[in-house]
Computed example of a mutant assay.
Amino acid sequence: MTRSRTNRPAATGPRRRAAVSRLAVLLVLAVCAVGLYAVTAGRNAGERTAPAAAQHGPAASAVPSPAPTGKAKPKPARSQVPEHGDGRFTEAPGTSRTIGHGTPLRYGVEVEDGTGFSAASVAAEVDRILADKRGWTTAGAAFRRVDSPPYDFLVRLATPDTTDALCAEYGLDTGGEVNCSGGKDVVVNLKRWVLLSPYYKGRPAEYRALIINHEVGHRLGRGHRGCPGPGRPAPAMMQQIKGLHGCTANAWPYDRHGHAITGPAVP
C-alpha cells in the first residue's frame, strides 16, 4: 500500500506564541550587544588619542624649531649717543657769580633737545671748569654766565649732525666727531662729551674740562700747541684727540702752582 506524503501542519496556539517570544528576546540581545560594542570601541579610541593631544597641544602640526648648534652671537653694543637732533636748544636759566678779575666775559650755555642732558647740569659743569684755579682765570680772564644776550661766547652742546652743521657755518669740518669754536659759538659735540677719548677713559670730568678749556682758549685768542717733550703734560691747547705724541694727558692751561702748561706753536 502506497503511503501518500502530506505537509506538516504549522504550529498554532501556545506553541506559536512561545516561538515569537524567543525570537523577540534574541533580537533585543543582539541590539544590546551591538550598542555595547560601539560604546566600548569609542571609549577605547578616546583613550588612545587623548594622550597624544595632551602632549602636542594645538601646535602639534607646526614645524619644530631647529636645535641650537652653538652659542648665540653677542649683539654689538650700540652707542648711547644720538646722531641726529632737531636743532632746537634750551638755555640754562639764571646767572653765575663773576669769577676772575676784571671785566667778565658773558657766556651762555645751551643744550640741544633730545641729548639726554639738561641745560642746568651742563651749565653747572661749565661753571665749575671755568672757575678752577688751573683754568684761564690764572691768565687774567674773568667770566660770568648769563641767560640772555649779549654774549661774548655761547657754549652749545649738540648732537654730531647738528655740530657739523653749526661748525660748517664757519668753514670748519668736524666730521661728526670733534668740537669747534667759531664766531661766538663754542660747539661741544655730544659724542665727545659722552664717549670722551681713549686717553681719558673713565675720566669724564677731566676730559670735559679739556673740551671747555681748549675751545674757550680759542675764544681768548689762543692757538694750537704741540707736545713740549716726552713725559711732560700735554697743553690744553694741544689737539689731544689726535694723539699725545709722547706727552701725558692734561686738561688744564696751568698747573696747581700757577705755571703755564704750553708747548711749541702749531701752524
Rank of each mutant, 00 (worst) to 15 (best):
A131N: 11
H224G: 02
I212L: 04
T40C: 15
G94F: 04
A249K: 07
P51Q: 04
R3W: 09
V63D: 05
N179A: 02
R192I: 01
G223W: 13
V187A: 01
R156T: 01
A168W: 10
R208Q: 09
G176R: 04
G100T: 07
P253E: 05
C247E: 10
P93T: 07
D147L: 09
A119F: 02
W193D: 01
D161H: 05
A139C: 03
S96F: 03
E169I: 02
T2R: 09
G70P: 03
G42E: 14
A251G: 08
R144S: 05
Q80A: 14
C180G: 04
T159W: 00
A168C: 12
A249Y: 07
T262W: 00
Y170A: 12
H245Q: 07
A139W: 03
R15G: 10
D255R: 07
T137F: 01
G46S: 14
G114K: 04
L172R: 03
L27I: 12
P198G: 12
R203Y: 05
H259I: 04
H259N: 15
P267E: 11
H214Q: 12
V178P: 01
G246N: 14
Q239D: 14
G102L: 06
K191L: 06
H245P: 01
S148K: 13
V126N: 02
L130R: 06
G35P: 08
A33D: 11
R156I: 10
F143T: 06
T12H: 08
D86T: 10
V186S: 00
G217I: 06
Y170P: 00
S21F: 10
A38H: 15
A53H: 13
R78G: 14
A19S: 15
G229E: 13
E112M: 08
F143N: 04
L26N: 14
G243T: 01
Y151H: 13
I241L: 12
G57Y: 08
A119L: 00
G13L: 09
Q239G: 07
W193S: 02
G226M: 01
A19T: 12
P204V: 07
A77V: 14
K242W: 09
R134S: 09
C167E: 01
N189D: 06
A54E: 05
A209C: 14
A205K: 08
A260G: 09
A205D: 15
L172H: 03
G94L: 13
P68T: 11
A59I: 06
G183K: 03
A19N: 11
A92Q: 09
G171P: 11
V28A: 14
G176L: 03
P64A: 12
P267W: 10
K133F: 02
L105F: 06
R144Q: 15
G243K: 03
F143P: 01
S121V: 13
A10V: 06
G42P: 01
Y151L: 11
S61E: 09
M1K: 10
L29K: 08
L172P: 00
V20G: 13
